[in-house]
């Protein structure tokens, strides 16, 4: 099923930052969001994931199809790697975390407490959560932050496999993952003309 976004407008802190966003994401395809800091990449991803309502426009996929990976990985420092991942697997009703541990190269760290992981290892654990979510559309917000070159390549492989299995990915990143098949969407084209959200029906009255 295609993931279609049409005429979407999103707001951050009461100010409309993006409007008229249109794109289609087919199964097996990846789309990279580009744009300078503050253009609204995170806001767009949060809106698509169902965490905040759009100002206007349609999103074809329900939030249940979307696995969202933000800046924060949702890890508990006092739990082990296995416990952290098993929790998210249970929440998503999936079984078996071994595959995810293997793919993200975390097997040797499985009994270590998350608080004792390095930043890059934590990030890998956060991304392993995507694999146990069992959801087809990945929304990735700067997934490669604090990953070294080898880990970036590892993760690119994971994404490529996901696409190969009919999944899709939408990512905001400055680093080239080396996914030749990924299309690029420049969000600067959808930058809103400074419409204030509070104005919605409120401000126009004074016009």
């Amino acid at each position: 099923m295609d993931f279609v976004v049409s005429d979407l407008a999103v707001a951050r802190g009461g100010i409309c930052v993006l409007e008229g966003v249109n794109f289609t994401l087919r199964p097996g395809a990846a789309l990279v969001l580009r744009g300078p800091n503050g253009v609204g990449k995170t806001t767009l991803l949060r809106t698509l994931a169902g965490l905040q309502p759009p100002l206007e426009g349609q999103i074809s996929a329900p939030p249940e199809a979307i696995a969202y990976a933000a800046h924060a990985d949702g890890l508990k420092g006092t739990l082990s790697v296995t416990e952290n991942l098993e929790f998210w697997a249970a929440v998503h009703g999936t079984r078996g975390i071994d595959h995810a541990l293997d793919r993200m190269n975390l097997r040797d760290l499985r009994d270590r407490r998350a608080a004792n992981l390095s930043a890059g290892q934590k990030r890998r654990l956060g991304l392993a959560r995507l694999l146990v979510s069992g959801r087809p559309i990945w929304m990735l917000d700067e997934p490669t932050v604090s990953l070294d070159v080898a880990s970036v390549a590892l993760f690119a492989g994971v994404v490529r496999d996901h696409l190969g299995q009919g999944g899709s990915a939408l990512m905001a990143t400055h680093i080239d993952l080396g996914l030749s098949e990924a299309a690029v969407l420049d969000l600067a084209a959808f930058r809103a003309q400074g419409r204030v959200q509070a104005a919605h029906g409120f401000d126009e009255a004074f016009a």
Partner: peptide, 15 residues
Amino acid sequence: LRRLAVIEARERLGS
């Protein structure tokens, strides 16, 4: 006050 906040926000956006 709300109206003022809206105008100020728009000023900051520079449009």
